[in-house]
Write a protein that binds this DNA or RNA. Structure first.
Length: 597
RNA sequence: GCCCCGAUAGCUCAGUGGAUAGAGCGACUGCCUCCUAAGCAGUAGGUCGCGCGUUCGAGUCGCGCUCGGGGCGCCA
């Protein structure tokens, strides 16, 4: 099983090396999808100057060599150490035609027999052609839940994107630590505890058990903003809490436990793989904070400024042009998010041994995270053996494009969004399934699928308005479209009384829709690997949509069950492969796949 | 004031320095005696915000603008 782009790239490199010398065997073959052929190589133009010949001449000799299939004579690896088992490059089997066009494009068409063989191999491969990557440890920080605050619509993206990234990394063989950095330890908890003391423990318990986090939080917040005395008490209360004061801890535990129950329920319904063990509460870092501060102060990374312990990573300046700090310990002795974030990155790098940390976090934290990374570098925790990256998540905006204001009631709870999604799906299928249980199950899968796919199918860093019609669409490039393709495939097998898992071909491509589908399916491994590399699930979403489109075209034009036996077997195999790619891909995005719809 | 992000079809968005910039929605025209019409085939719709530059070649890279969003010391 070989990725066509990689196979062609290697073939072009071999041709270049054979024609112009071994130094060109490592040049970028610039393989791109083409509207004039399966792929094109643009290497002739980029190498014209170095080789010292007109691009069309270069293209012509490469094309001639590719067409005659002698490229396999000298086997060159694209880079030393990069071993690709199964990259069997008999050029004569691979390239059907190579033609020069325009200023020096080489239009490359694959042989049908090669594509068919790849599809057959992919069907036999338990990994569907997805490469295996080293078991490096990757920490993915995502979702960003808070104790005593309900998840709102804006949490959806950081949650679904992070979860998709996690699933993809694990599928590729990486070792992944999920970290939902649970906000449970900041000033706001001083505020909440003070408020709880004001209203009494009994009333607090009642309100929280009823799930009215938001109301409770907002009441506290209002007092905090309006009443300086209350605000001061709150800040003092955090210090007490962080120092382990019994009464404070007791009330805090109440808040945490209730919130966890709420989060478990919503993650389960959204099919998010986060469990209790993946919660990475800020309070977890509390015992490390003093030591982190001591270490940074000893190494000179942190200094006292205005009574607070601050790190001033180089290159960051504030409004007034002065160096900008990360506050590690506040002047009253308390710790804030700067402290825990710095402690967390030390823990992840030094204690867990993470080789990569991906922060799937809102764009508004860009500066803060850049400073955290800078401090980690200064401290010597973040070296060139590891990486920390901010996978920026776009902000959800109000209709006009500004901030969503909680006060103005613009914040929509994530649960409301989910309910509405399922309700819309329900309406579409209201008269479709006799069994109400099955109907409910399908509506749930379709609604949640639409919601998640809607968020996962756009670049994660684009900001976006809360728009039900857009987010919950059920037709077109949507989750249900992909789900529907799988349901149709299953229906074919069900009608014939066959098990897709038993379908093995052989595969023979008798027409354009079959050929296009098989070629599309071959790109699965590349699409998955790309998501891991960039932490951008929308690339997989786009790939799956193209795959479902290719399948649907095939479905419309190539009857399966009514075909002659040989063609029937081949088409059943293509169906089986399509089904596995789509189901696996949707699984990697965390989108449920109903059997029928 | 400084920093980060964005501006592509009526709307929402893709787009790896390559040829004639693509989807979906919406609009319009067709398609259910045929494996599920949540579908398919087709039509219309673009000075890729503006200017200059780099390049054989720029929606893509650089610089300067305009407009919008976000951020910039004890909230997270």
């Amino acid at each position: 099983m070989t990725d066509p782009e990689a196979a062609l790239g290697l073939a072009v490199q071999q041709a270049l090396a054979a024609e112009f010398g071994p130094e060109y065997g490592t040049a970028d073959p610039l393989i791109r999808p083409s509207s004039f052929a399966d792929y094109q190589s643009n290497a002739a133009m980029s190498l014209a100057r170095a080789i010292g010949r007109p691009p069309r001449d270069i293209a012509a000799s490469v094309a001639a060599r590719l067409a005659e299939g002698s490229a396999s004579a000298t086997v060159l690896r694209s880079s030393p150490g990069e071993d690709q088992p199964g990259t069997d490059l008999a050029g004569s089997d691979l390239v059907g035609s190579a033609e020069v066009s325009g200023p020096g494009f080489i239009n490359l068409t694959l042989r049908d027999s090669w594509i068919a063989a790849q599809a057959a191999a992919q069907l036999r491969d338990p990994r569907l052609g997805v490469p295996e990557e080293p078991a490096d440890l990757v920490v993915v920080d995502y979702s960003g839940p808070n104790v005593a605050k309900e998840l709102h619509a804006g949490h959806l993206r950081a949650t679904s994107v992070g979860d998709a990234v996690v699933r993809v990394l694990e599928y590729l063989g990486r070792k992944v630590v999920r970290a939902a950095h649970l906000g449970d330890w900041g000033t706001q908890f001083g505020m909440l505890i003070e408020h709880a003391l004001d209203v009494g423990q009994e009333a607090t318990y009642k309100q929280l058990v009823a799930g009215e986090f938001t109301a409770f939080y907002q009441a506290a917040r209002q007092k905090f903003d309006a009443n300086p005395d209350f605000a001061d008490r709150s800040r003092e209360r955090v210090v007490l809490l962080q120092a382990g004061d019994e009464q404070s801890v007791q009330l805090w535990t109440l808040l945490v436990d209730d919130s966890m129950e709420y989060l478990r329920a919503i993650y389960t319904r959204l099919d998010i793989t986060l469990t209790d063990a993946d919660m990475d509460p800020e309070s977890f870092y509390n015992p490390m904070l003093a030591d982190v501060c001591a270490e940074l102060e000893a190494s000179g990374v942190a200094v006292i400024s205005d009574g607070a312990l601050c790190a001033f990573p180089p290159g960051f300046t504030g409004r007034d042009g002065n160096p900008l700090p990360i506050i590690l310990r506040k002047s009253n002795g308390g710790y804030g998010y700067g402290s825990t974030d710095v402690a967390a990155i030390r823990y992840r790098l030094r204690d867990l041994g993470a080789q990569r940390i991906i922060y799937v976090v809102g764009s508004e934290q860009n500066l803060h995270l850049a400073m955290v990374f800078a401090v980690a570098k200064q401290a010597g925790w973040l070296t060139d053996k590891a990486s920390a990256e901010h996978a920026v998540v776009g902000l959800m905006t109000a209709k006009g494009g500004g901030r969503l204001k909680t006060r103005a009631g613009e914040q929509v709870k994530l649960v409301q969004l989910m309910d509405e999604a399922v309700e819309r799906a329900n309406q579409v299928i209201a008269d479709r399934y006799p069994d109400p249980v099955e109907r409910t199950r399908i509506a749930e899968a379709v609604g949640i699928g639409a919601l998640k796919y809607g968020d996962l199918s756009v670049a994660r860093d684009s900001s976006y308005a809360l728009d039900y019609d857009r987010m919950l669409a059920l037709t077109g490039n949507t989750g249900p479209y992909l789900q529907y393709a799988t349901a149709r495939i299953r229906s074919i097998f069900a009608r014939a009384g066959l098990d897709p898992a038993q379908s093995s071909g052989p595969i023979e491509l008798t027409g354009q829709p079959e050929r296009a589908l098989a070629l599309q399916l071959a790109g699965f491994g590349r699409a998955v690997a790309e998501v891991a590399e960039t932490a951008e699930p929308h690339k997989l979403a786009g790939y799956l949509f193209d795959t479902a489109s290719a399948f649907t075209t095939f479905y419309e034009q190539c009857p399966v069950l009514g075909a002659d036996e040989e063609i029937r077997q081949s088409r059943l195999a293509l169906c089986a492969l399509s089904l596995r790619v789509l189901v696996t891909g949707l699984g990697l995005l965390g989108i449920p796949v109903p059997e029928r719809m």
